[in-house]
Simulated scan of single mutants.
Amino acid sequence: MPHRRPLHKRVMHVVRRGHLYFGLLLLPWAILYGVTGFLFNHPTAFADAPTAAFGRPELSGTPMESVPSPAEVANQVVTALRSRANPPVGYELVQPERAKYTREAAFATVKADGRELNVLVEVGGNGGTVRSRPTPQTAPAPVEKAPFAIGGGGPKGGGRGPGGEKGGRPGGGEKGPRPTAPADTLSLELPLHDRVKAAVPTVLERTGFPSGEVTVTSVPDLTFLMTDGTKTWLVTYNAQVGTVSGRPADDAPPADDLSTRRFLTRMHTTHGYPGEPNAKWYWAVVVDAMAFVMVFWGVSGIFMWWQIKATRLVGFLVLVLSVGAAVWLGSGMHEVLSASAR
């Protein structure tokens, strides 16, 4: 009677073979996730358009070299509101450490030499990126106005002015036309968007890009707590349009619960190195390490598979099937994404 191997050895043999064949089957996706993770983390790597990153040296000598902290700007806003109040109200800044910008960066566009330059500048003055692309030569086709459309002519998705809840966010996002300031505005000396506008030409010169007319398309809102002596307010200030809005701090909507699923998906899409070391910076290091390990795992797996002669034929068939499926699915996704971008 031939000797049969123990059950646990037979099970481990199946597990090892399954690990091998599933690894070959998922090889293209492992490499894809590794490479795209690296690209997410490094916007200037293998860019499809001229792109450059800049840091504090490129911002030296510009108004963005030394940017007031959110608490300092909030204190300026409170002081200006106190001076404008009639009858006088003793506005005071509350918990200045909670003052913050709603986004980490401001954005500007420059049209020069037939190209459109998109400039991202971190509000902390740590740096940013410049991305260049050709200016579209043909005007977009006119869009028929829907019979049920209401309003129009202003920035899409703009905020409500003073007294509203959104504080007049320009353009409703990171891109869009520069908003028109209302008649009554609150302007500070050298606000954030003017600092960005003054710094962009210097940054372009030092990074080797042509200069032109600078348009700051978006800056983040500033939120902070302020008291009038009887009530605490959650205030939102937009320096670009000069709007101030607020609501009682007690009436602020509760923060969205960060569910396990949202936490995991947001971790997967979090990428890039912030201007200073923090948890996000170290997470970016892990993303780079995972990108390297996944590519190494995929490539080294081929060598390990080839060393086992008994698995070469089946492994080759699985690998051909995997590559063929990846090419087919990649072509299909390219067609779908190209259609949605038109």
Score class of each variant (00 low, 15 high):
84 R>L: 08
57 P>T: 01
89 V>T: 13
33 Y>W: 13
66 S>R: 15
37 G>H: 00
72 E>F: 07
87 P>E: 02
51 T>E: 14
69 S>N: 05
42 H>W: 15
70 P>R: 06
50 P>C: 03
75 N>A: 15
67 V>A: 09
87 P>N: 03
65 E>S: 13
38 F>V: 03
69 S>H: 11
32 L>V: 07
91 Y>L: 06
31 I>P: 00
84 R>Y: 12
49 A>M: 07
90 G>H: 03
84 R>C: 04
34 G>F: 11
64 M>P: 11
57 P>Y: 02
62 T>C: 09
92 E>P: 03
33 Y>G: 15
80 A>L: 02
95 Q>A: 15
65 E>H: 12
60 S>R: 14
70 P>D: 06
79 T>M: 01
23 G>T: 07
57 P>F: 01
94 V>H: 12
95 Q>H: 14
56 R>P: 06
81 L>F: 08
87 P>L: 00
82 R>Y: 10
45 A>Y: 13
54 F>L: 06
77 V>Y: 01
36 T>F: 13
93 L>K: 08
52 A>H: 11
77 V>M: 09
45 A>R: 06
84 R>V: 00
26 L>T: 14
51 T>R: 04
37 G>M: 11
47 A>D: 11
33 Y>C: 13
37 G>D: 03
23 G>A: 08
52 A>E: 14
94 V>M: 10
89 V>W: 12
96 P>M: 01
22 F>A: 15
49 A>E: 11
27 L>A: 09
66 S>D: 14
90 G>W: 00
95 Q>G: 15
72 E>T: 00
92 E>Q: 15
60 S>G: 08
46 F>E: 04
93 L>N: 11
75 N>L: 12
44 T>D: 15
62 T>R: 06
81 L>A: 04
84 R>I: 04
50 P>K: 05
81 L>N: 09
61 G>N: 01
31 I>W: 05
77 V>L: 10
93 L>S: 08
42 H>N: 14
76 Q>N: 06
64 M>F: 02
52 A>C: 02
30 A>L: 13
34 G>A: 08
22 F>I: 15
39 L>R: 00
43 P>A: 06
37 G>I: 02
47 A>I: 04
60 S>H: 13
28 P>C: 04
53 A>V: 04
59 L>V: 04
39 L>N: 12
85 A>F: 02
78 V>M: 05
45 A>L: 12
89 V>N: 05
94 V>W: 04
88 P>H: 03
55 G>W: 00
50 P>D: 01
63 P>M: 01
69 S>M: 10
25 L>S: 14
26 L>S: 14
53 A>S: 13
52 A>R: 13
81 L>H: 01
63 P>K: 04
96 P>F: 06
62 T>V: 00
22 F>E: 10
67 V>H: 06
80 A>C: 00
73 V>E: 02
84 R>M: 07
83 S>M: 06
80 A>W: 11
53 A>Q: 08
67 V>W: 03
37 G>N: 02
78 V>S: 01
29 W>H: 14
35 V>I: 15
25 L>E: 12
72 E>A: 11
38 F>T: 08
56 R>N: 00
58 E>L: 12
54 F>A: 01
24 L>P: 09
37 G>F: 04
94 V>E: 14
32 L>C: 08
78 V>N: 03
